[in-house]
Design a protein around this nucleic acid. Sequence first.
DNA 1: AATCCGTCCAACCGCGTGGAT
DNA 2: CATCCACGCGGTTGGACGGAT
Length: 442
Amino acid sequence: MSMTSESEERMISKNGSDSPFDEANSGGNEGGNGQLKKGPWTAAEDAILVEYVTKHGEGNWNSVMKHSGLSRCGKSCRLRWSNHLRPDLKKGAFTQEEERRIIELHAKMGNKWARMATELPGRTDNEIKNYWNTRIKRKQRAGLPIYPPDICLQPSKQNQQTDDHMNTFPTGNAHNPDFMPINNINIPSFNTKIFELNQPLYPQTLLNIPPTIPTCNLLSQGLHSSYPSKRLRGPDSIFPSLSIGGNNAIPTGSQYQIDGGQPFMLSSAYDAQSSHAVLNGNQSSSSEPSWAMKMELPSLQTQMVGSWGSPSSPLPSLESFDILVHTPPTEHTQPCNNLSPRNSGLLEAVLYESNTIKNSTNNNSFCHEAKWEAYGEQRSPLVHSSSTVFSEDTPSLDEAGFKVQEATSSRPDFLLGSNGFGTKDHSLLHDAIGTLFGEQGL
DNA sequence: AATCCGTCCAACCGCGTGGAT
DNA sequence: CATCCACGCGGTTGGACGGAT
């Protein structure tokens, strides 16, 4: 980008007074010297800005800077206006209704603060963002679920009733903090104890485990933004589609039981017609949120999608990774055309490769094939290896107090609640990488 | 009383997008 | 078509504040 006004402003602010308060602050204006002021706004500055905007209207913020006498950049003016000076702003703490709305909206949209703000009259994106960030931190510390189950279930019902994309569960939640690694949330939080714990907070439907929990959302988080937006960036745009859906890891209709509780089905939105079903926004948007998993499981999915899948993750591209993973079993190596370079399958691939190496060493590779065949489909090792890895190598989930009983068929454990790379998974990963680089002589 | 620590929130920063030229 | 520019979004930072030690 060229030297925009913002660039200029950055230069100025860096080269200019280091302290936003050096003087200026007496009235806020430095006007003449060309240096842009930063830091807190003064009442005088506010007054100037309000007067200017009242007179000339919003927009053209750089001209505000030029003509109002404020030595604030246009961006700063816009922010100040929209976050604090706008007459229609609602001040004060969020009401309970607003809080609930925020939770609902976040469940639907993920970190789309600006869009959420449009649904909450008088509230700003910054306000909502701050609220959410503090709230989520608090909940994470407390080991509580981010979403109350009833709210999480809502979009499901809506989805079943309408095709309205606005009602779809977020598929762009790779950036959703809720799905980021939550190290301090223990797997046991999934059992009913956590629900009891939550009762005072979310008195409704806490034990109302949905009869049908799709797997697709687990995998699709962060891959698509379902609401119309002219600004698709980050996870919304970098995952045009992943091929996981074409190789759904969980057999459709598998039934599971948690701690002897009510069995529930794991249904997959994947079907033969839509090989991208799981990760395709349309498909996933028609599916339900797997609230329980998202809330409670710092699972492999969570780890990978939330952290590894993050656009900011300094991970090697798939291309570079392909250099590392150069010997996948051919029969499992479906062309993975849809695999984004930032696909969360990266870790899976590492684990897969490691495991493959290990097992080939131990003449155990046959086991992988058998297991995959048990899933009834061909799958890309880049996508599904972790299921094999974890089903083989991950110790019993019971250790973490999270017991999942599969009623009908084999399933990838990681989807049901790996312990989110706890100690053992870290060692597993370490082991895997060690295997990859060490045993392969790299 | 002093210090530490966590929370809240205003503001900043980097970047992407779309319109204008 | 390329470039410039304005705008907006989401993430992050840093200071103020209050409670705990």
